[in-house]
Amino acid sequence: MLSYALTFALTCFALGFAMNVLAFARAPGLPDRILAVDTMVVNGIALIVLYGVKTGSGLYLEAAILLALTGFVSTIAFCKFLLRGSIIE
């Protein structure tokens, strides 16, 4: 049962990832593109965690932490750039 649920969750997040790529391609403006990439990062974190569950290794979680950290900072940096024209004030 667990392996079926795992496959289901992996399929869902992979589909979501594909939808994000489509949203990225169809986005009308830059803020929408940033939103699509940010969602992609969150879905990527979920995929990494699920793969960690599948392989039974705790190492993947460290990658998830790093992705959560850098994804957040890069989204804020992009927004700051659009808002002010510079990242570091």
Binding site: L2, A5, L6, F8, A9, L10, T11, C12, F13, L15, G16, F17, M19, N20, A23, L35, A36, T39, V42, N43, A46, L50
Partner: peptide, 15 residues
């Protein structure tokens, strides 16, 4: 896992 997958999919679908 199932609930998480469904919500993740809904979020991306809403986008």
């Amino acid at each position: 896992l199932v609930v998480g997958g469904i919500f993740g999919l809904i979020g991306s679908f809403g986008l």
